[in-house]
């Protein structure tokens, strides 16, 4: 399909260590239509973060090709960067930096003029319920609040594609539900395509239009949550996952990674 906003073909990444090569990603194909919320589901070490970092131009692929929002990953990484937002698992906040400063500077890094960067910061703060927190250093925020700031930073340039690496890991149930709501709103308000990784089945089930199951660096199954359940015995997603990977993943237990 030609209007896919993400096209990935045969993407691989091998880390060369003294102890030998680590084949973190062994050949991933993805096609993501505009406006989709895609869940990359897989156990720890499956290669989700490595895949996302490659798509966000942060890690050179060993092989394969990708096109994101019309820009070729290898030939035009700067073009890709203009059109994406990326929120790492570790978040990427400076603890001593106030929220407003982070937001405005991020806008300026995306080359918004100063006034526009300020306006964008205020607008995002209002949308993400951060207005009262703008003058606090990020170290003085709760986990959920910090996550919202990180998402706001990822949305500063109104990206075509937002990459979220385990956006709810470590959050309490209330904050997780809030995060799901926020991701849906980003899609509804800005038409943002969202690719998120998770190892929570309930999250993939509740949030993703489509799930791609990754295991040992390769795509092992994909479909809507309903598809997967139906294909693998008509039970829960947990049963489907077990059938696909031969392994169970934590359902809702807040596993720290």
């Amino acid at each position: 399909m030609n209007d896919d906003v993400i096209k990935v073909r045969g993407l691989t990444r091998t880390f060369r260590l003294r102890s030998g090569p680590v084949h973190a990603v062994r050949g991933i194909d993805l096609s993501v239509p505009e406006g989709e919320i895609l869940g990359l589901l897989g156990p720890n070490g499956a290669g989700k973060t490595t895949t996302l970092r490659m798509l966000a131009t942060l890690l050179p692929p060993t092989g394969g090709r990708a096109e994101i929002a019309g820009h070729d990953l290898r030939r035009d990484p700067a073009g890709v960067r203009r059109r994406i937002g990326y929120v790492a698992q570790s978040g990427g906040l400076d603890p001593s930096c106030p929220v407003r400063e982070e937001l405005v500077t991020q806008g300026r890094l995306h080359r918004l003029p100063r006034g526009e960067a300020r306006a964008r910061a205020a607008e995002l703060a209002a949308a993400l319920d951060l207005t009262g927190l703008l003058d606090r250093p990020t170290a003085a925020l709760s986990g959920g609040q910090r996550r919202r700031v990180e998402i706001a930073l990822g949305l500063v340039n109104r990206p075509a594609v937002l990459f979220l690496d385990e956006p709810t890991t470590g959050l309490d149930p209330g904050a997780r539900a809030e995060m799901w709501d926020l991701v849906r709103r980003a899609r509804a308000d800005f038409g943002t395509t969202v690719v998120l990784t998770t190892h929570y089945l309930d999250e993939a089930d509740a949030l993703a239009d489509r799930i791609v199951v990754v295991d040992a660096g390769a795509v092992v199954e994909e479909g809507t949550p309903a598809d997967l359940k139906a294909r693998h015995g008509g039970g829960s997603l947990q049963d489907a996952f077990l059938a696909i990977t031969g392994r169970s993943v934590p359902d809702t237990a807040p596993v720290a990674v």
Binding site: T57, A88, Q89, S90, L93, H110
Partner: peptide, 17 residues
């Protein structure tokens, strides 16, 4: 320190070289 916090990656995922 910035790299470990992910600040460097966040800035690198912008058009700034």
């Amino acid at each position: 320190m910035d790299r470990n916090l992910g600040v460097v990656d966040r800035m690198r995922a912008t058009p700034v070289g």
